[in-house]
Computed example of a mutant assay.
Amino acid sequence: MWNVTFFLHMVGTAALGFYLILPLVVGGIQKLSSGAQEGAISTIHVANRVAQYGLVLQLLTGGYMMSQGNYTYVWMAVVTVLLLAMFAVGGIMSKPLKNALAGIREKRDVKADIGKLGTFSAVLSLLLLVMIFFMVFDNII
């Protein structure tokens, strides 16, 4: 059972890999034409939803693996808070994504929404990097 759970946990991790490159993708959106911006933001919206499902998979499999392992309570709390923060920021990011798509279709200026996307994507990337750090160095705290 452990191997299956670990495999599913790694599949969830692969889905979250999108968050690592997201700041680079969002940074180049403003240079695109409006049609290309719409396509890029639409793709980010779908990828964010897939990553959210990856987070659910991480929550379920990680929770099971934590219950089977020997981890400190502090480590488990830190990892859980990081996961919940990723859920929150990923969910909050969906509103600027929707607003940017609507704005592009209505020919409005979407710089503010793209700026918010840049901030949220940087925060998500940082949260994921910190999470990876604690996964690799699980005995640090």
Results as ranks from 00 to 15, higher is better:
K98T: 15
I29C: 10
T43H: 07
L83R: 07
V4A: 10
E38Y: 05
L82M: 11
Y73P: 00
L55K: 11
A85M: 14
F18Q: 12
N70A: 09
R105S: 12
S34A: 11
L124E: 01
S67C: 06
V26P: 03
T80A: 13
F87V: 14
V74S: 10
N139K: 14
A122H: 00
L129M: 14
P23Y: 04
L126S: 09
S42Q: 13
L127Y: 04
T61W: 01
S34Q: 05
V50D: 06
S33I: 12
A40S: 11
P96A: 10
Y64I: 13
I141C: 03
M93Q: 15
V130F: 03
L124W: 00
F120N: 04
V74W: 06
I29A: 07
L8C: 13
L83H: 09
V74I: 11
V74E: 06
D113K: 04
Y73W: 10
L16D: 02
L83C: 10
T43C: 08
M66S: 14
K31D: 09
S121G: 12
V89T: 12
F7T: 14
T43E: 06
H45L: 13
G69H: 02
H45Q: 11
V4M: 08
V123K: 04
Q52A: 15
I21P: 00
A88Q: 08
T80R: 06
L20E: 00
A85N: 09
M1Q: 10
L22V: 08
H45A: 15
L117T: 00
G54N: 13
T72G: 10
I44S: 01
R105D: 08
A102D: 07
A102S: 13
V50H: 05
L60S: 02
H45P: 03
A102C: 04
Q37F: 01
G27T: 02
Q58R: 02
L20Y: 01
G39T: 06
L22R: 09
S67R: 00
T43V: 14
Q30N: 12
F18E: 06
N99R: 15
T72S: 15
L127T: 00
I21C: 06
M93A: 15
V78R: 13
T80E: 05
L8Y: 02
E38D: 11
S94R: 13
N70D: 15
G39L: 09
K95V: 15
Q30M: 08
Y73G: 14
A40M: 11
L32F: 11
V136H: 04
G91D: 08
S121Y: 01
F137H: 12
L83P: 02
A112T: 12
G118L: 05
L97M: 08
V110Y: 06
L32I: 04
M93V: 07
K116A: 09
L128V: 05
V89A: 08
D109W: 09
K111F: 08
K95Y: 13
